[in-house]
């Protein structure tokens, strides 16, 4: 197990470097961070040259990247163009988004697996069809449409909730945004659980368990659910990273000042250090989530052993 973890961590290094290099190259080579600071005005060439030197932009791209990575490992993500440290922005943004993501993931686990289990057990019945059609509709409606519809009807028209989240949000304020954020994945988790349950209902080990006369609770809870959850766990694990990045739209609609909001502001205002810094951390979160998923496999499925 320990050796497996070390091997996986080592394998992550080239992927991490490759991904961040692509992002870095896109932002710093294709876009021109210094020209963007001046907007429409034509800057003084001497000033530009000095700023390019200060920001290491006069060096070859690979050198710039190596210098940037070196700084990151000492905890220096650079400064946004208004002089605020990127790490300071992260310190404000990540806890908020983490809170939102955790609420969203809990919804996925509780509602998604619950609904998937119920409809899988009652395959072909009314509940199953309702769930199938409902998830299809949720999958088809883009997140920002769901967000505005939810905001319009629940907050503006019927006044059940506040239309936007306060500066220091509490958990109950996060529930509506989390629903919107989790909507798509919730539908996928439900469908995945259902398919998996339906497949495993036909398995030999399940027939054996029933034939042994085990109580229904045990058959479903231990034999069926545990085996059916393997693909679901994979999905939810990879989804953690996707949700943190996907919060761009949801956080914009509900005015939550998290990672997605800062990232979008960085993109709109062409604030290269913010964008690269946030994306780098997101990529790291994504890769770590994948590693944890692979380790969870062994817990769920004893047949999988990591030597």
């Amino acid at each position: 197990m320990g050796r497996y973890v070390i091997r996986r961590l080592l394998q992550m290094i080239p992927v991490f470097l490759g991904t961040t290099f692509i992002i870095f190259a896109m932002v710093y080579a294709l876009g021109d961070p210094v020209a963007q600071m001046f907007g429409d005005r034509t800057p003084d060439p001497a000033t530009v040259a000095r700023m390019r030197h200060d920001l290491n932009l006069d060096k070859p791209l690979v050198t710039q990247y190596v210098l940037y990575m070196g700084n990151i490992f000492t905890g220096d993500f650079g400064e946004a163009f208004n002089g605020q440290k990127v790490t300071e922005l992260m310190g404000e943004a990540f806890p908020t988004t983490l809170q939102l993501t955790l609420v969203a993931i809990s919804l996925e686990i509780v509602l998604g697996i619950g609904l998937g289990l119920l409809s899988g057990l009652r395959r072909g019945k009314i509940l199953d069809n309702v769930v199938l059609i409902g998830t299809l509709v949720v999958i088809s409606i883009p997140v920002f449409v769901i967000g505005y519809l939810a905001q319009y009807f629940l907050a503006v028209k019927w006044n059940w909730v506040e239309p936007s989240v306060s500066a220091d949000p509490t958990i109950d304020e996060m529930i509506l945004p989390a629903f919107v954020l989790a909507g798509l994945s919730l539908a996928y988790v439900t469908r995945l659980t259902r398919t998996s349950i339906v497949e495993n209902m036909r398995a030999d080990y399940l027939r054996t368990a029933v034939a042994k006369g085990l109580p229904r609770r045990r058959v479903i809870g231990v034999h069926l659910l545990r085996n059916s959850l393997i693909p679901v766990v994979t999905f939810i694990g990879t989804d953690v990273g996707a949700l943190m990045g996907g919060a761009i739209v949801t956080e914009g609609i509900f005015n939550i000042h998290g990672v997605g909001y800062q990232l979008l502001q960085g993109v709109v205002r062409r604030n290269s250090p913010t964008v690269v810094g946030f994306v780098t951390v997101l990529v790291l979160v994504f890769l770590l989530a994948n590693l944890i998923v692979d380790l969870l496999y062994a817990v769920l499925d004893p047949r999988i052993r990591y030597a």
Binding site: V15, T19, A242, L264, V279
Partner: peptide, 10 residues
């Protein structure tokens, strides 16, 4: 490692 939406945005 790059989600489509995030990569597309950047």
């Amino acid at each position: 490692g790059i989600p489509l939406l995030l990569g597309g945005l950047v």
